[in-house]
Amino acid sequence: MASESYDFLLKFLIIGSAGTGKSCLLHQFIENKFKQDSSHTIGVEFGSKVINCSNKTVKLQIWDTAGQERFRSVTKSYYRGAAGALLVYDISNRDSYNALGAWLTDARTLASPQIVIILIGNKKDLESEREVTFLEASRFAQENELMFLETSALSGENVEEAFLRCSKNILTRIESGELNPDRVGSGIQYGDGTIRKLSSNKPEVSSSDGNCGC
């Protein structure tokens, strides 16, 4: 609502193959409840939540994309200017893990090379049907410089943690100057003016302004 105040607004993406539980993750994160009768997402859906992270109030603007192939053209257009992404696979579905590479390329090329991505192995609760081990996934994450967590949208385990970790990482990068919120398409917006002054003292303000037309 209009009265909400926050320090930063971050644009997030949730991507990954169909049926990996992206919408459920989002629902769990926002409503703290498991979405029982989830159907395939059409196009892109949206959710937002204000969280506290590193002593800052951060509003997450999360775009939950459809995993189905036919929606690729629609969903791709939402990648632009995302600050963070949850790359989701299903630990009980090898195919969804195998597709990670393609998703990752998409995200890095379409969103921004600097996008902060956390790899999420969802459906942790289906331990008996596991097809992807923690070890190999974390190795994949390491190789591709991703954070990694296994979550369960059903039980809620690690769901909030995933968003928190990703946000924290972004905030740290902003502080270190690695990410510049003033850059167009950074996916980061200031919530109020005071902070802007603080961080605009940093040297790299004048990177690329104006029409960056990507």
């Binding site: 609502m1 209009a2 059409i42 196009g43 949206f46 603007q61 775009w63 036919r70 929606f71 053209s73 629609v74 791709k76 257009s77 939402y78 632009r80």
Partner: peptide, 19 residues
């Protein structure tokens, strides 16, 4: 809230056909 949300959707819309 819906209007704001709609604005956000519109601002982020890429006008691709949603199959």
């Amino acid at each position: 809230a819906r209007l704001d949300e709609l604005r956000m959707y519109l601002e982020n819309e890429a006008w691709e056909v949603c199959p």
